[in-house]
């Protein structure tokens, strides 16, 4: 129970949570699968949810209001999205393994991709919700065109899911929650580098091709475009590659799900 939750006392019993309308609504919701369960758990943690929305804004507002160069602002926001997706998923799954939840989920007669997909999907939805204010702020401040809005939204989703895939991989490899951060950085750093986030996207050659197929390269480009800078890829390219990346990532999560559940 949230420590800040108001309580009442009744004779012969311990303190009980007051049946507020919000809590009553949440209490009536019955989770059918892992997606619903994870969303219900997050919805009940009101303070944590508020913090989750606030933290990206703390980073984004000074960048945008301070008029930071679009290349650096885009890079920083892309790293933020990648870290949120990867660390969030990896920590969540590592904790679930330590608590024994993954063992029990491995024993349910459901396909692995549905079980793990629910956990990863819920994480991505919550991450997208907490990034929405940042996306709106970026697009409004940069005067983004509708295709840039759409491209940015899809690229953020692809970036979050790609981060989640890396998080699943880390959860498969890492021994515990403590190892997760280090392992995530080891996997993310080359992807961010090949996405051209630190050096810019080359005009031709293998560097350009790597950045082209890297969802973080597309996301960096989408942020730069939405902030009013000169993007490396057109909004149509961002849309197309991000959509393809989402499909590939979901398939990869499905393939990883059983090894993730069965690993002891």
């Amino acid at each position: 129970m949230n420590a800040a939750m108001p309580i009442r006392r009744r004779a012969g019993r311990g303190p009980l949570p007051i049946a507020t309308p919000r809590r009553a609504v949440l209490a009536r919701m019955m989770p059918r699968g892992t997606l619903g369960r994870e969303l219900l758990v997050v919805a009940a943690r009101r303070r944590a949810l508020a913090l989750k929305v606030g933290i990206p804004l703390i980073l984004a507002v000074p960048l945008i209001i301070g008029g930071a160069p679009t290349f650096w602002a885009g890079m920083l926001l892309t790293v933020l999205v990648a870290m949120m997706g990867a660390v969030g998923t990896a920590v969540n799954l590592a904790r679930a393994r330590q608590s024994g939840l993954l063992v029990r989920l491995a024993l349910v007669p459901r396909p692995g991709w549905r079980v793990v997909g629910g956990v990863v999907g819920a994480g991505a939805i919550v991450d997208l919700l907490q990034l929405l204010p940042v996306i709106v702020l970026v697009a409004v401040a940069g005067g983004a065109a509708p295709d840039q809005w759409a491209g940015l939204l899809l690229a953020v989703m692809a970036g979050l899911l790609t981060g989640s895939l890396l998080g699943c991989l880390v959860a498969c490899l890492a021994g515990g929650v403590g190892e997760v951060l280090l392992d995530v950085c080891v996997l993310l750093a080359p992807m961010l580098f090949f996405g051209g986030l630190f050096t810019g996207v080359p005009r031709l050659g293998w560097g350009w091709a790597a950045a082209m197929i890297d969802p973080f390269g597309q996301l960096g480009s989408a942020f730069i475009g939405a902030l009013g800078g000169t993007p490396a890829f057109s909004p149509a390219t961002v849309l197309l590659v991000s959509a393809a990346a989402i499909v590939v990532v979901l398939a990869a999560v499905g393939l990883l799900s059983r090894p993730l559940l069965e690993r002891r």
Partner: peptide, 27 residues
């Protein structure tokens, strides 16, 4: 099958009804 390990696994914010319903619905 049904299996319960030696440590209870549950999210503290869910109610027993929600937590039990979730596992029941898997079968």
């Amino acid at each position: 099958m049904g299996y319960a390990a030696d440590e209870p696994v549950e999210e503290m914010t869910l109610s027993p009804r929600q937590a039990t319903y979730f596992w029941c619905r898997q079968w």
